[in-house]
Amino acid sequence: ADFLSNDDYAVYVRENIQVGMMVRCCRAYEEVCEGDVGKVIKLDRDGLHDLNVQCDWQQKGGTYWVRYIHVELIGY
């Protein structure tokens, strides 16, 4: 899907992401590398560009918070 802005994409992720879902990092962020796959373990839905998504990352080996714009949804 094509999104006009980071805000549009962040809204899409916020409306669709669920705890337990698998996500792929589509934009490297601090300790999380692009392409790493993680399981969503906690969500904080306050802002669009806060650290909203806590995942247990496979490559990184452990949990880390990222923003909506850092992840793509790959289902369960």
Rank of each mutant, 00 (worst) to 15 (best):
G75I: 04
R67K: 11
V66G: 01
D36P: 01
N6W: 15
R67G: 13
G20M: 04
D36E: 02
R24L: 01
L43S: 00
G61K: 12
F3A: 02
Y64G: 13
W57S: 00
W57I: 03
A10D: 06
Q58E: 10
N6V: 13
V13I: 15
V13L: 08
S5W: 05
L73W: 00
V40H: 01
E72F: 02
C25A: 06
G62T: 05
L51W: 15
V40F: 00
V71L: 13
Y12M: 05
D44M: 13
N6M: 15
G47W: 04
D36K: 04
L73G: 05
W65A: 11
G62Y: 05
C25L: 02
Y12E: 07
I74W: 06
V37K: 06
L73F: 12
H70N: 15
D44R: 14
V71W: 00
N6C: 07
S5K: 13
G62V: 07
D56A: 14
V66H: 07
F3N: 14
K42W: 05
R24A: 07
V19W: 02
C55K: 02
K39L: 08
I69P: 11
M22F: 14
T63A: 09
A28N: 15
Y29D: 14
C25P: 02
Y12F: 02
G61M: 05
S5V: 13
M21V: 04
F3H: 04
D44A: 14
S5T: 11
H70D: 14
R45E: 10
D8K: 12
E34V: 11
I74E: 12
D8V: 05
S5H: 15
G35V: 01
E30W: 02
D36I: 06
H70T: 04
Y9S: 09
K60S: 09
V23D: 00
M22K: 15
R45K: 08
E31C: 10
G38Y: 02
V37P: 00
R45C: 11
K39A: 07
I69N: 08
M21Q: 11
V32P: 00
H49D: 04
G20K: 02
W65P: 06
V37C: 03
M22Q: 15
Q58C: 05
D2Y: 13
M22D: 07
R24I: 03
N52R: 09
Q18P: 01
R45V: 07
Y68R: 03
Q18H: 06
K39V: 05
D7F: 02
Y29N: 10
T63I: 08
K42I: 02
D56T: 10
D8G: 09
V32A: 01
K39F: 08
L51N: 04
S5I: 15
L51C: 05
E31F: 07
H70Y: 03
G75P: 13
E30C: 09
G35D: 06
D44N: 11
L48E: 13
R24E: 09
R24H: 15
C55W: 03
D46E: 10
N52V: 11
Q58L: 06
Y68Q: 02
L43I: 11
D8E: 14
A10Q: 06
G62L: 07
D7C: 03
A28P: 10
L73R: 03
G20Y: 03
A28R: 09
E31T: 13
G75N: 07
D2P: 10
D8M: 06
C33P: 10
R24V: 04
G62I: 11
Y64I: 05
D7W: 08
I41E: 03
G47P: 12
V32S: 01
Q18Y: 15
D44G: 10
E15M: 08
S5L: 10
G75R: 14
R27A: 08
E31A: 13
C55N: 01
L48T: 12
V13E: 06
N16F: 06
A1S: 14
K60D: 01
N16T: 08
T63M: 13
L73A: 02
V32Q: 00
A28F: 05
K60N: 11
W65N: 10
V71Y: 00
R45W: 12
C55V: 15
G75C: 08
E15D: 09
E34Y: 15
R45T: 12
E34W: 08
V23H: 02
D8C: 10
N16I: 13
S5C: 06
Q18N: 10
Y9G: 07
Y29M: 02
G75Q: 08
N16C: 03
D8T: 11
I17V: 08
G62A: 11
N6Q: 05
I74S: 11
V11I: 12
V37F: 12
W65D: 01
G61F: 04
D2H: 15
Y29Q: 06
E72I: 04
C26D: 00
W57M: 05
V40W: 00
V40S: 03
L73C: 04
G38C: 01
K39G: 00
E34H: 11
D56L: 08
E30R: 10
L4I: 05
R14M: 10
N16G: 05
E30V: 12
H49V: 04
L73M: 13
R14K: 08
V11T: 14
V19D: 00
V13G: 04
R67Q: 15
G38N: 02
E34L: 07
G35R: 01
D8F: 08
G47Y: 02
D2L: 05
Q59V: 09
V11C: 15
K39T: 09
V19I: 08
D7K: 08
I17Q: 04
M22H: 13
Q59T: 10
C33R: 14
D36H: 05
I69S: 14
Y68T: 05
Q59H: 07
V66R: 00
G75M: 06
Y68C: 08
L43P: 00
Q58P: 05
G20W: 04
C55Y: 07
V19Q: 01
S5R: 11
I17E: 01
W65R: 11
E15N: 11
N6R: 14
N52S: 12
C55Q: 01
L48R: 09
I69M: 08
R14V: 00
Q18S: 12
D50K: 04
M22P: 07
T63P: 07
I41H: 00
C26G: 07
Y68W: 13
D2A: 07
R45Y: 02
E30F: 11
I69V: 12
G20P: 00
G35S: 04
Y68H: 08
K60P: 07
A28W: 04
G61P: 09
R67T: 12
K42Q: 15
E72V: 01
H70F: 02
I41V: 12
R14L: 05
I69F: 15
Y68A: 10
D7G: 11
Y64T: 11
V66F: 00
G38M: 01
V66E: 00
Y9K: 06
E31V: 04
V13D: 05
I74H: 13
C33Q: 15
R27N: 14
D7S: 12
Y76E: 15
Y76F: 11
W57F: 08
R45H: 15
E72M: 06
Y29S: 11
L73I: 09
K39C: 05
I17H: 01
L48I: 09
I74Q: 15
G47F: 05
V40K: 03
D2R: 12
K60E: 05
L43Y: 01
G75T: 12
E34A: 10
R67M: 03
A10F: 03
Y76G: 15
A10E: 10
L43A: 03
Q18C: 13
E15G: 08
D2G: 13
D50H: 10
V13T: 03
G62N: 15
A10K: 05
E34F: 08
Q58S: 13
F3I: 11
K42C: 08
